[in-house]
Simulated assay, not measured.
Amino acid sequence: MVDPQTIERWRNAPRLTSFSTFFQRTASQEGGVPDIAQPEPDLSLLDFDLDCAVFAHSHARLFGGFDGHYYASIPYRLEEQIRLGAGIYSFATRIWARTAKPATVYTLGAGTGCFIRTLAVLGDGRLKTLCCSATAANRDVFLANRASEHAHFFFGPFFALDSERYIADPDLSDFQNGFDILFEDTTFQMFDRDRVRQLEFIAPRIKPGGILLQVQKLAQQDPLVYDEREWQKDELFKTRYFSRQNISEKKSEILNTMSDCQVDLPTTVTALRSFFRYSVVIWNSGNFYTNASSNARSSLLEFISSLVKPAIPPAYCYEALPLVLTDTQSEPIAPALAWRRANAVCSSAPGQRQDC
C-alpha cells in the first residue's frame, strides 16, 4: 500500500495544480487546440490493415475536445493508438471467448476516454472499459458522447481509485476484480518521478495474466539527444497542425514544468523489474515510448503478436523494435517476439489492382 505522504504529494502535483487550468481550457477547446489542421490517421503506415481501419473509423467518430490536441502534439501517436486499439480489441475478445466473461480495460488518464469508448462500442458487452480524468471538461465530453453503456468514467485522479472506491461505487462493480489490460497514458509524468511508488499503486489492479501498457515521454541521458528529438517533433511535425505561436505558448506553459517529472529509460527498467518478469518497448517516437509488461509470458506474446508493425516513419523511431527491457533466463520472451502480418484492405481478386 502506498503511504499517505506519497498520496499527499500526488495531490499537490503539477497535474492537479499548475496544469489544471491548461487541461480544462484545452478540453473545452478554449485554447491549445490545433489552429492549422486537425490530425487524421495515415492508414498507409498501418499497411491498410483491415482491423486497424475498422478501429480508426469508429475512433474518429468519438473524438472530443482534448483529442485533437493530443494527437497533433506527439508524432504519429494517432496511428499508434489505432494500432494498439486493434490489438487490444483482438486480445480482449480472446479473453472473453475463453472465459465467457467480459474482458476489462482501464485507461489511466486518457482525456475524454475516446479510446475506451471506441473499444466499448466495438466490444458490445464483450469488453467493459473504464477511464479516469480529473478534468471536468473531459467528463462532460465523455457523458455527452458515451456511445456505449459498457464504457465507464471516473471523475478524479488515478490514485483516488483505491480498493475501497471500487467496492463502494456501484458504477465500478465490473472492475472490482481488476483489469485484463491497464493502460497508463502519459499520466505518471504529470505527478512525480517515483515510478516505483506509482507502479506499486496500480500493479495490484492487474489480473493474473494481464498486461500493463505505458506511454511515457522519457528523459535522455544526453540532454542534446533529448533536445534534438524535441526539435524534430516541434519543427517537423507539430507545425503541420499548430502555429508557431501556439507551440511556443504550450512549451512555456506546460512542457518546461513537466520535464521535472520525467525519468529516463534505465530508471523505467529498474521500476518495471520490481513488478514484472517481462517488459518490451513496442513503439518509439522521438522521446516517447510505449512499453508492454506482464508476468505471464504467454499473455505478452499473444498481445504483441496481435499488433501490426509500428506505424511510424523510420526517421522518428530511434529504437530497434520490439526492444526487450526485462526478460528471464529460464523462459526468455525475446526469441519468440513477432508482429502479425497486416490483413490488407486491398482486394486480391483476379484482374483488380493490388495497390491501395
Rank of each mutant, 00 (worst) to 15 (best):
L108A: 11
E200W: 07
N284V: 05
R77S: 15
D227I: 15
R146V: 09
K207Q: 10
P75D: 00
A344E: 13
F91C: 00
A315R: 08
I211D: 02
R139Y: 14
I36F: 03
L265K: 01
A219G: 06
T26G: 03
S28I: 06
G351H: 09
G64D: 00
F303I: 02
L122H: 07
Q198G: 03
A100Y: 08
Q189S: 07
G65Q: 05
G210K: 11
A100L: 07
I116L: 13
L62W: 04
F159S: 13
S330C: 13
L172E: 04
V54A: 09
L161D: 04
D327H: 07
R98P: 06
S248I: 05
P170L: 09
Y106G: 03
Q29E: 15
M190T: 14
D35L: 04
Y278R: 02
F288Q: 07
R297Q: 05
L218F: 01
L236V: 12
Q214E: 13
N12T: 04
S279L: 06
A92L: 15
I247E: 00
E319W: 15
Y166R: 12
T21H: 13
Q29M: 14
F275W: 06
S293H: 08
F158M: 05
I7Y: 12
L325S: 00
F153H: 00
F276H: 00
P310I: 09
L323E: 12
A37C: 11
T326C: 15
D260G: 09
I312G: 03
F154W: 05
E40D: 14
D174R: 15
N12S: 13
A100M: 09
E319P: 11
L300I: 14
E8P: 06
Q220T: 10
G32F: 06
Q81K: 14
Y76R: 06
L325W: 02
I282T: 00
F303C: 02
Q214H: 08
L272R: 01
R341Q: 14
W283K: 12
R240F: 10
S347Y: 05
A334W: 13
A296D: 14
E253D: 12
H59R: 10
L45I: 14
R197P: 07
V225R: 01
E40R: 15
R197Y: 06
T328I: 10
R193D: 05
A110Q: 12
T6I: 12
S58D: 14
V281M: 06
S330I: 14
E302L: 06
V269F: 04
Q38E: 09
A100Q: 09
D180L: 08
F22C: 02
L236A: 13
D47Q: 13
Q232S: 10
G85H: 04
S274W: 04
A219P: 03
E164H: 06
R195N: 12
T21C: 10
I95E: 07
F191E: 11
F175H: 01
T267G: 02
R139S: 15
L213K: 06
Y226I: 08
L108G: 03
I333D: 00
F237L: 02
L300N: 08
L325G: 02
F303M: 00
A296V: 11
F201C: 01
